[in-house]
Amino acid sequence: MSKIVETAEIARQDPSYYQALRELLFQLADDDFIISFRGSEWLGLAPHIEEDVAYSSITQNTMGHAVMYYNLLEELGEGDANFLAHDRGASDRRNGAYLEKRNGEGKYLEEPYFDWALAVVRNYFYESFKKVKLEAISTSSYKPLANVAKKVLMEHPYHFAHWKLWIKQLQTSSEEAKKRIQNRIEEAWEEFLDVLELGNYGNEMVQHQLIAIDEETIKGNWLEEVKTVLVAMPEGPLGKKYGSGRNGEHTSDLDQALGTLAEVFQSDKTAIW
C-alpha cells in the first residue's frame, strides 16, 4: 500500500513520520548547501574560463536545490529558511562529512592552492550519489518532496555528465593526472561512506516510504555507477573516516565553512539584507 502525504500540516500529525521527514530534508538541504559553498570558493580559480563558467553554473543550480529543501523545512515549521541555512551549528548539520572537506591548501582569498583532482572526484562521486537518492525520493510519500525531486532531476543530467566527462578525461590522460585522480579516489574511499547512509532515522524513512530504497541499496546502486567509470576500483571497503555527518559528526572544516558563509548574516541577525 502506498501512502501519500499532501501537505506539511498532515505530515506534522504523525511524530514518527515528521521526525524521519525532517532528517531526510536536512540531509538533502545540507548536502547541496555545503557542496555549493565549496564550489563557490572555486570561482575564478578553475583550470580555464569555460570551466569557470560551467562550474559556477552548476554551483548556482545546486544552491537553488538547497533552497528548495530549506523552504520545505520552513513550511514544515522548522523556522526561517535563511536561519536554517546560516544559523545552525555544526552538530545540527546533516551533510556527509566528506562534502565539507576543504578544497585543498590555502584559503579562497589567500594563496588558494586548490586541488582540481579533489574537485573532480568529489563532484563526480556526489552527483552520481545524488542521482540515486533523487530517483529514490521522486516517488516519496511526501508529495511536496517528490515534486522537488522531480524538478531537481531535470537539471541533474547536465551536472552529472559534466563531472563524468572530467573524471573520464583525466583518468586517461597524462601520468600525472592519472596519479592525482587515483590518489583522490583512494582517499575518498575512506571518507565517502556516510554520504551514502541515511543516518539514525534511515529505517523510519523507508518504513514511511519517504524514500524508496534503504541505504544498502543506495550504496549498491552507487557502486554500480562508479564501477563503470573508475579505471581502478580501490580494494578496501568504503569508510567514513570522519564519522557520520548524517548524525551530526563533523570536522573542523565545517566550522571554517560555517564561519565564512554566515559571516555577514551573523554580523547582525536582526537586519534585513
Binding site: L45, Y113, S174, E176
Partner: peptide
C-alpha cells in the same frame, strides 16, 4: 596561482 596550480590539468587535456 590559479594559472600555475592548474597547469597539470591543461597539460592533461592537451595530452589525449
Amino acid at each position: 596561482i590559479a594559472y600555475e596550480n592548474n597547469r597539470w590539468v591543461r597539460q592533461a587535456l592537451a595530452t589525449d
